[in-house]
């Protein structure tokens, strides 16, 4: 519980991962925020299969 109570009594410092619209809204409220331009790992099995299909 202490960790959550500490959050309630601290200045918010937010990592935003995903939609940039939320980053902008948090900024607008003068919250300290850093945006992670997150991408899924680029090559998956499905990607490889698709690439192979295009080659054949």
């Amino acid at each position: 519980m202490e960790k959550i109570l500490k959050l309630f009594n601290s200045e918010l410092k937010i990592i935003n991962i995903g939609l940039e619209i939320f980053y902008r809204d948090l900024k607008q409220q003068r919250i300290k925020v850093i945006h992670v331009n997150w991408q899924p790992s680029p090559v998956t099995e499905k990607d490889l299969e698709d690439a192979l299909r295009r080659l054949t």
Binding site: K6, L7, S10, L12, K13, I14, I15, N16, I17, G18, L19, F22, L26, K32, I34, H35, V36, N37, W38, Q39
Partner: peptide
């Protein structure tokens, strides 16, 4: 703007909340 969780935590080591979408 950063490109990984690691970088985010280096930049903001005292981050206390993550908004995930």
């Amino acid at each position: 703007v950063v490109y990984s969780i690691d970088s985010a935590l280096q930049y903001m080591p005292d981050a206390n909340l993550a908004l995930i979408s």
